[in-house]
Simulated scan of single mutants.
Amino acid sequence: MAPMQEPRDIQNDIHREARLLLRAARVGSLAVIEDEYPAIALVTPAVTPEGDVVVLLSQLSAHTRALDRDPRCALMVSGPPAEANPQTSPRLSLVCDAARSDAPEDRERYLAIHPYARGYAGFTDFGIYRLSPVGARFVGGFARAATLDVERLAPRTAALQDQAACRAAMAAANDGLGARLDEVAARHGGSGSGWRMVALDPDGFDLGREDIVLRVAFGRMLRVYEDALTNLADGATHG
């Protein structure tokens, strides 16, 4: 008997939950293959608009050297538990291929999310690695575990890969909606004024002030980056 398929709207909800969890993650566990056995390390991820993960790693670390020998790896991120039981935490496990990245946009993305790293990111032993998912498993709560379609974890449409449009929308928000950004930051636990949009993707954006970065999710995925301005003006954000 063929396995029962979940309705498409439920699948869409699960993929969206997984995307939002990944994009909001500021820490994760990276598993690598070291001397024929798995080894695990704490990493601080950032997520590109198209859904790949970038991390800053040092060649002095054993897990980095292991990745250079064998690029197969896994990454797990999790959210806060819904109850006292830690097993109620939502979590996403990705199976990935890793590669060193010299792309300026990957480095820019990482430092936008982790600005404190600017103090050491320029050291010669540090480099950006891009983790490209080839498999994904999400647990969103009791009886809500699913193997995901990695192609649906992030959009691949041309409109949402247009980085010039992304930068233009960010500039417009920072130049014309400063007071609104401060209001949004306050709703998400930020204090003071002068918050700026430091990263934008189809699912939300990140507000930065000094070394603090706050994640803000949109109520729905963007169709084009210009919609971010409409969402901000209309208050169409979570939280």
Rank of each mutant, 00 (worst) to 15 (best):
Y116H: 14
I113G: 05
A179K: 13
R152V: 02
F126T: 03
D125T: 01
A117I: 01
G141L: 03
P104F: 02
P86A: 12
G178S: 14
E151H: 15
A99M: 11
P104L: 03
A179R: 13
A121S: 10
L131A: 04
V184E: 06
R72F: 08
M76Q: 15
L148H: 06
N85T: 08
R72C: 08
E151L: 15
A171Q: 09
G178H: 10
F142W: 15
F138H: 04
A165V: 08
I128H: 01
P90V: 00
P86Q: 13
Y129T: 05
L131C: 04
D106T: 10
R167V: 06
A168C: 12
S78G: 09
E105G: 08
A172H: 14
S101F: 06
G119K: 02
A172K: 14
R156T: 15
D125G: 00
V134C: 10
F142R: 13
R107I: 05
R91V: 06
A74M: 08
P81A: 03
L75D: 10
L181F: 13
E151R: 15
T157I: 14
Q161T: 14
V95R: 09
E83C: 07
P81Y: 03
F123Q: 07
P155A: 15
A146F: 00
P155E: 11
Y116R: 14
A179C: 02
A117F: 01
A164V: 03
P90L: 05
R118D: 08
P80R: 14
A121G: 03
A173G: 12
S78W: 00
L177G: 08
A143W: 04
T157D: 15
V184Q: 08
V77I: 02
A82V: 10
R100G: 07
Q163R: 15
R118I: 00
N174Y: 08
L160R: 02
A145V: 09
A145N: 05
E183L: 08
C166T: 14
C73G: 07
G79I: 01
G127S: 07
A158F: 13
L153F: 11
A173H: 11
E183K: 09
